[in-house]
Amino acid sequence: MTGTWGLRPPAFRRVRVSEVSRAFGRSHALFRVSTELHAGTVTAIVGPNGAGKTTLLNLLATLDRPSEGNVTFGEGAGSVTHRAAIRPHIGLVAHDTMLYPELTGRENLRFTADVCGVDPAAVSTWLARVGLEAAADSPAATYSRGMRQRLAIARALLTEPTLVLLDEPLTGLDASGRAFLSETLRELRAADRIVVMVTHHLDWGSSELDRAIVVARGRIRFDGAPPETLADLYAREVA
């Protein structure tokens, strides 16, 4: 793969979640969850609706704060906990596209580049990479769901984040989109990034993932090497 990818070394090599709970009102979305994520790995988080997957992702993104416990970024004693310092190294593809529908694809990426202090040249590179060159100058509102998802992925990766968080990244993507995502995950792994993906697509498996975490009712049920497909694991741990 050509382009600017991988020029910037990762800002940290580990994210540690220790005894994290997050309460909303009178119930817990997450309860005493601990895990550790390492550079150069792709982790899938699976679980039924309302299990706490998105809550966990938001906590990793520093956009939400744990009610108890903490999330630390970086190595051991020298870990950088300050959220302001960490945030620019996080790339998020959320449930919402986080785009401005009135702006074109190019303008959306240019906006992110300006706000995040990225070289504007990266915009064209990323438009080409996600296959949106032809549509780059049409408003994002005219895009199909899949095209919007591609743009959302480009928006998140434009800043070369260290921690890449993907909430249902396959939403709206066709076969070629899925192939693109698999390829991107491989590149991210090679570039020593920490990738976390919440997904309902259970046909992912050991060929694409390094690790799987099963979350149900706010707790971690399984945390380890993924089987051949997530479906097996899901059937065993949840159903």
């Binding site: 009102g25 309860f31 707790r219």
Partner: peptide, 17 residues
């Protein structure tokens, strides 16, 4: 009271598990 409710729900979930 809110803390108690929270702890009770956590306790209930643990027992269910």
């Amino acid at each position: 009271v809110e803390t108690w409710h929270l702890q009770l729900s956590a306790r209930r979930a643990t027992l269910d598990d």
